[in-house]
Nucleic acid binder design. Structure first.
Lengths: 350, 350
DNA sequence: CTGTTAGCGCATTCAG
DNA sequence: CTGAATGCGCTAACAG
């Protein structure tokens, strides 16, 4: 009970009366065949002694860790769920995913996390665009570690080639269309600039949407930081016929807008329509329910892990030029992950 | 660019013209002094060659990984934030925290995660009570790996001695008092049995609260799974004078209750008062604002990591009986982390 | 099939 | 203060 004294393959070997190589073979190398008898003996001995393979030793020896690293800005909301799904996919592929939060957007912490990951000799890295600085990202690529970016729209071509991005732009664009179709003559985007590239995508999509629905639409773009929510809604109050449409940065901001409107007794969705993004729990359970865009976590995770694994193979197998060619067709550009609209009472009467 | 060829201390050593031992000393062992000159040479060489210590090799050699493991039921909401804070505290203490989600409460996944962690030879483990099965937990303890439980009220004494628990019971109890003081004559707990021990704590506290406020209070306990929220609120509708009080399992459930009530045009907080737990983003931004209990993440994380580190020391230093004695005073029972009430419009008119 | 051997990259005595 | 030697636990050829 005091000194459980690590049991190693050596112990198992002599307990089973075979060599350590044999133990290694039967225990953690499916490829090499052994006689039924030895297999049984070894497995039995291992079981009895409570043997547990030492990951470090194995990794050191085979020069591959089967560990992947993930760096996200935080572990709340979208990030947490994303991390969870990525972890599952990684595990399914036989890899371990080490999750790191860069604590907001602190470049200091980011550097440290990266260093830790690299020192662990992770086989590959998945990073959220928002969590990474240009410098460090460059250094990863240089270090030779395969990298896949998530939501990294604003990255240089050579890096972004491994990006898996959510289709926020299209979602925003369609939000505008939805609101316009719903009779809104004035449509406003309430964003969150501190989310940088993520916010930028929304803005791009919003403007595209405005263009799409043509003239006759009055529009505006604001930032949640720059407005006082209640005052903002209050100002709208006078001009709610025809209805005004609000495209919110996400469901959280949508909820704030919604709350302020409710407080003022504004009729939703008849006088004011709101659409969020994320389809969080709150979107389904607020009153009125919030129209929002659902994120396909599993899909995105699969894509990201899949892409990374393919990169791993390529960097390992040192492929021929011909193969490289073929592959580039598949991996040429970043992957776009489409969201799907979930309509609720904040935009339509049931 | 193709084969960055791992640079090792050997490379650094010859580049600096010293032995590998010296390199190891100056690079990762503050304790051993070296001449200013060698230090400079070594650091310079390391820098130039882009040396990065191999965690596995180091760990293998010194038989300590400086890695801690965390197993939580998921990475959403509370869990995600907790993980994030624990990670920070761990890093501050010079450790790396590997976060695992046991994917809901799947015992299968839990076993696998545990196995991975143990194979990595983590120095210690932090587990959320809800994420663990009895079997596996027992096996951890037996494996000799120090363990700290989070929210593990329902565990046997010998394991729970390393627990850091949130004071949900007290929070619920005080919620009842708050509602009673607010004039509620009927108070109902709307729980979530699937949250097992966590829900149980709330129930215990709730009942304690009922007892505390004495007679004259009509109370009831229900489960979110067993009611249809709107129907539930509807039933209350007739008997809202004096006001009814609702103690919700968490802010999410509180939001649902709130939404249903709003939809029905019930006057909150005059006819119906609601209090949640967690003080989530939604609690502050819903309308009306939700009275809730704030969770001291940093505090809990500090306590948990601190406790684990102390256990690490003890198991390493093989302390004398006398020391063990002294320590047990400090660590005798599980630590209780108190929440703090944040009152908003769902219980009081501003 | 199974055993022997040579590292993987680093920390750590123990001499010098 | 510095260097040579030993081993951590395991994998990967290579022989037998």
């Amino acid at each position: 009970m005091s000194k459980p004294k690590q049991v190693t393959i050596v112990d198992v070997a002599e307990a089973a009366g075979v060599s350590i190589a044999t133990v290694s073979n039967v225990l953690n190398r499916g490829g090499i065949r052994s006689s039924k008898e030895t297999i049984r003996k070894v497995e039995q001995a291992a079981e009895r002694l409570g043997y547990r393979r030492n990951t470090m030793a194995a990794g050191l020896s085979r020069k591959k860790t089967y560990e992947l690293g993930l760096i996200v800005p935080g572990l709340n909301g979208y990030y947490g769920l994303l991390a969870e799904h990525l972890q599952v996919e990684a595990h399914n592929a036989g890899y371990h995913l080490s999750v790191f939060s860069s604590g907001g957007f602190d470049p200091e912490i980011e550097r440290r996390n990266l260093e830790v990951l690299l020192q662990r000799r992770v086989d590959g890295l998945i990073c959220h665009g928002l969590a990474m600085g240009f410098e460090s990202t460059r250094s990863i690529v240089n270090s030779g570690t395969p990298l896949v970016l998530i939501n990294g729209w604003d990255w240089p071509e050579d890096i972004a080639i491994g990006a898996v991005n959510l289709g926020f732009a299209t979602a925003s664009e369609q939000s505008v269309k939805l609101l316009a179709d719903g009779g809104c003559k004035k449509i406003i985007y309430v964003g969150s600039k501190k989310a940088k590239a993520v916010d930028e995508q929304r803005r791009i999509g919003f403007l595209r949407g405005v263009e799409l629905v043509g003239t006759g639409i009055d529009y505006d773009l604001t930032d949640i930081k720059e407005i006082e929510v209640e005052a903002f809604i209050h100002n709208l109050h006078g001009s709610l016929t025809p209805p005004v449409g609000l495209v919110a940065f996400d469901d959280h901001i949508a909820l704030r807008l919604l709350s302020a409107a409710m407080k003022m007794g504004i009729d939703i969705p008849n006088d004011l329509k709101i659409v969020g993004i994320n389809n969080d729990y709150i979107a389904q359970h607020s009153y009125p329910g919030l129209t929002s865009w659902d994120i396909p976590y599993t899909y995105q995770a699969k894509k990201a892990i899949g892409k990374l694994l393919r990169k791993l193979q390529n960097s390992a197998e040192q492929k021929l030029a011909a193969d490289q060619e073929k592959e580039s067709l598949d991996e040429a550009r970043e992957i776009d992950v489409p969201l799907t609209l979930i309509e609720r009472q904040s935009t339509k009467t049931l």
